[in-house]
Amino acid sequence: MKSICLYNEAHQWHVFGRDSKKVKGIVDTNQYMIQSGNRCLLMDPGGIEVFASMLTAILHHVSLDEITDLFASHQDPDIISSLGLWEQALPHARLHTPRIWEGFIRHFGSTKIKYMPIPDEGDILDLNGLKLQFIPAHYLHASGNFHVYDAKAKILMSGDVGAALDHPDAPMFVEDFEAHINKMKMFHQRWMPSNRAKQDWIKRARGLEVEILAPQHGSLFKGEHVQHFLDWFEALEVGTAVA
């Protein structure tokens, strides 16, 4: 699994993805980790199938006792079905997740981990002095959904917003935005059910200073491509499966 450092100042952001060992037929995912001193937050740590590769990759950066917090943007299997495996190594970690999904996420074989339900209006996580915001992104695409914003690093981990179903060795950053549209258009039109929710999120995202928009699938948006994406998404009609 590839690992790239997105930000390296007083704290660090890492993205993990492009797992060459993953089982054929499962969608490729990006996993994220913020390291702040001796505490780490794993974001959307992935499905069961990528767990071994993900844990191996992480051990090159931090030890297990430094992973104190997990975040699941929503309840999908590619986001958090590895939970039952993670909690064997992290019995004292806390899982931050939309409050409505706790009982559902427990189906992923989780018995020990401490749940920290995020209220609908969002919350702030203090990770060793680093303030991280859980930004509401409900109905994008899950009915309870959050993104993680780091104002210091100016990175917005945007879950399925900005996601593209791309080939497994796609570049880590979007290079040609126009060419990238084809890879994400159908995904956003089909997976995102609500134009109203989308506009609400656009308004919220435009209020943040974002240098990197980091989705859970496909390439990340950096610099001017962040604005390109927001403009494109704002104009896109979603929820199109309903005739």
């Binding site: 844990l55 191996t56 992480i58 051990l59 090159h60 950066h61 931090v62 030890s63 297990l64 006792d65």
Partner: peptide, 9 residues
């Protein structure tokens, strides 16, 4: 992860 820096955990 044999060679990983934090494999000892």
């Amino acid at each position: 992860a044999g060679q990983a820096e934090h494999a000892s955990s």
